[in-house]
């Protein structure tokens, strides 16, 4: 396509636009929404405590586990959640480094959201002004040096499907956590079935996260979208149509699941701290 440069009008200046609607509201809300989640989730991940209820230390309570901390590879020192795969904080962990079970977990769902097609479009606008909104001018320093996702570093966004594979594993683990939340263990170690508000919170969490994860654009491609002949691959076509339904609502589920996963941590944390009571509905 190399040819004489087109005599184009000068690019608009930063935030220059002739739009007269309130175009700045959407990127501002996205900035505040993502910003609030990043600040809260970082704070919660660094706490390293109050991430569960029930288990050996709280007999009789429903076994709730914060999704920020699931799966628990190692419990923080002195805590026995009953969920840890490998026991207590490992001895090899350097004493000068802060230990929190969430630090091993949160990077993975974080990476899935960071590379998500919906979030990319949203945070490029809200955080980088690239552009701030449709038809609104960009910062002048980028100009023709713009690289987009064509070159490093953002070409790495093409690895989104690998983040998806891990996110699907997490849906299974969080589904198991929702099942475990239906049970409490008494002082003698016997299991009792019951449904509490917390069980519903964690169940809703996995439903919303699943709706977001399985509406992923990569998943839509891998499940059937890559085929040109749908009549030759009827099962893939059927799956593609169902995923397309979720994909059309990807933004909705992205926000709902983001809010709910944060709320789930708040709920478990406040119950663990004794500030809220996890009311039992059944059992």
């Amino acid at each position: 396509m190399t040819r004489a440069p087109l005599p184009l009008p000068q690019a608009p200046g930063f935030l220059e636009t002739r739009r007269i609607d309130r175009w700045w509201i959407q990127p501002t809300l996205v900035f505040l929404g993502f910003g609030a989640f990043i600040v809260y989730s970082t704070w919660a991940a660094l706490q390293g405590n109050n991430y569960f209820t029930g288990g050996p230390t709280h007999p009789g309570a429903q076994q709730l586990l914060s999704p920020f901390y699931s799966p628990v590879l190692w419990d923080a020192a002195g805590l026995h959640s009953g969920h840890a795969w490998f026991g207590q904080q490992p001895a090899w962990w350097p004493s000068y480094l802060l230990f929190s079970p969430a630090l091993f977990i949160l990077p993975f769902p974080g990476l899935f959201r960071f590379t998500c097609y919906y979030y990319r479009g949203a945070y490029y606008k809200a955080f980088w002004g690239d552009p701030s909104n449709c038809g609104v001018g960009e910062p002048g320093f980028r100009g023709t040096k713009y690289r987009g996702e064509q070159k490093l570093p953002l070409i790495l966004q093409n690895a989104h499907r690998y983040a998806l594979y891990i996110a699907i594993l997490f849906i299974g683990i969080l589904g198991y956590d929702a099942w475990v939340s239906l049970w409490s263990i008494d002082a003698e170690g016997a299991k009792h079935f019951g449904i509490s508000v917390g069980s519903l919170v964690l169940t809703m969490n996995v439903v919303l996260l699943g709706s977001y994860t399985f509406g992923c654009h990569c998943w839509r491609h891998l499940i059937g979208g890559r085929q040109d002949c749908f009549s030759c691959h009827k099962h893939q076509h059927a799956a593609w149509k169902r995923v397309s339904w979720l994909n059309q609502r990807h933004m909705l589920f992205a926000w709902m699941s983001l809010f709910w996963v944060g709320f789930s941590d708040v709920y478990v944390r406040l119950c663990s701290m004794g500030i809220w009571t996890d009311w039992r509905i059944v059992g």
């Binding site: 990319r120 479009g121 490029y124 449709c134 987009g148 996702e149 953002l154 654009h217 994909n247």
Partner: peptide
């Protein structure tokens, strides 16, 4: 064709008078 330059802002979808879901 430089498809990587598209950073999925979906502005094209929003202005399409034929409502083609261009980005998705």
């Amino acid at each position: 064709d430089g498809i990587g330059y598209c950073n999925i802002g979906k502005c094209c979808t929003k202005v399409c008078p034929e409502s083609i879901t261009i980005t998705d």
